[in-house]
Design a protein around this nucleic acid. Structure first.
Lengths: 235, 235
DNA sequence: GCCATATATGTGGTATTACCATTTAACCAA
DNA sequence: TTGGTTAAATGGTAATACCACATATATGGC
């Protein structure tokens, strides 16, 4: 258990170390847009890591548009100034450690939008999916079990009904982190789980009746506890 | 984002095929939460792919909380009902193909929030970073060069100044896609690039003077063309 | 027959190695 | 200089081997 956590953490760290070394290399050698980086094999030897590690790091930088790998040719710097490049790498190195409050703040923002869009665009199929998630949540809560997963699945169903694939994808990507932290910090107590049933139903009804403004309001009510966690004085 | 490692389209497709096969396996064998999947080696042989491919697919499903790999033991289904599981896998399979309009819609939503937060929370360092990006953009436009990158870097600087790491990360993750599609569809013409200079300056001034409402309004003005693209109406 | 211990096997995690297709550089002859 | 041939280098991919540990199996003493 502990070993696993440490090892995964180490791996993330290894990749970040390599990214930092690539950054230093770029700065030290004064590489400019279009210039070619040393080959993956050379970097692996120079950094004392495997070529796979180097490739993973390069892929990450490539995804964010900083590098461009051309098969049978090499890896090149994209057309970005050195200042912006360093700034983006700094951001990328900080990607792994988002704070929970910013996560909640973002979730609220996204969901107030998705619930509005869902009210406007939901199909009958969407409606059924939301209803199923709602029922599953209610069952779990009433039987006294933990229902964090079912809670989030209800919200994911709404995101899907929004008809906006990107928001759906973003919700999907932040949900695991939310679940983890909810379990860790116990943001919601049992009482709120019970109240949640009614609040979920209100949101569902608003979506069903295609009342976007009301749906948003009901979602705000549902997020009351999160608002407090996010902006409130204590903690 | 955990947001993940992205590879070529071809490989993405292979990964999705494997994920679909795993889904079919779960359904066909009626696996329930807690049940163990066949080992990676067996799956690789059964599917006729390499173990690395299987591992990548499993990692993706693990990230979204559907599976749980335990070292030296096996890979198990997490505590999710089969209906929800199928729904989430469907979403995951659709992750790679977000439509551009939904991307723009999401960007607008995120940025109207980040620009407001940036007005409230920006530090002097943030301000300088935004100003640098603004100047770089102006230089590029005035010299007649393409300035899509510099445009986005200005907006990324604002996201950073918002002090919300999650939104910053989300903006980072959707920016490459935006750049690609802007170049492909030529959403902005040269004229708008010139107008953009003034609009950027307005946004910057509002952030500098810590006027969140005005900053948001100026950003809306800046997004006028995007609104049109997204909704085909004046707004 | 039973239980404790030893051994073997299986597992996910990681690194090493090899091979491929293609590009790029080097070389050489005319 | 030119043109063509050959060899090396490179990113991409797969196959293989090894590790540490968990679990199943076998062993052996009682």
């Amino acid at each position: 258990m502990k070993i696993e956590a440490i090892s995964t953490n180490d791996n993330q760290e290894v990749q970040n170390v390599i990214i930092a070394k690539i950054r230093d290399l770029i700065n030290y050698k004064n590489l400019e847009p279009g210039d070619k980086l040393p080959s993956e094999r050379m970097l692996a030897e120079k950094f004392g890591v495997t070529r796979s590690n180097v490739r993973d790091a390069i892929h990450k930088l490539e995804f964010y548009g900083l590098l461009k790998s051309i098969p049978q040719s090499g890896t090149f710097l994209e057309n970005i100034g050195v200042i912006a490049l360093n700034g983006m790498i700094e951001d990328i190195l900080n990607l792994d450690k988002p704070d929970f409050k910013s996560l909640v703040e973002t979730r609220i923002l996204l969901e107030l939008k998705t619930v509005r869009l869902a009210s406007l665009r939901r199909t009958e199929k969407d409606l059924k999916r939301i209803k199923d998630a709602l029922d599953a949540y209610e069952r779990k809560v009433l039987s006294g079990e933990d229902a964090v997963q079912e809670d989030l699945l209800f919200h994911l169903a709404i995101a899907k009904a929004s008809g906006n694939r990107t928001m759906n994808a973003l919700m999907l990507s932040i949900t695991p982190e939310i679940i983890t932290n909810f379990n860790k910090y116990h943001v919601c107590d049992e009482n709120q789980a019970f109240i949640g049933i009614k609040e979920h139903k209100d949101v569902y009804d608003s979506i069903k009746n295609q009342q976007p403004t009301l749906a948003k309001e009901k979602m705000k009510v549902h997020f009351k506890a999160l608002y407090q966690y996010c902006y409130n004085v204590e903690k």
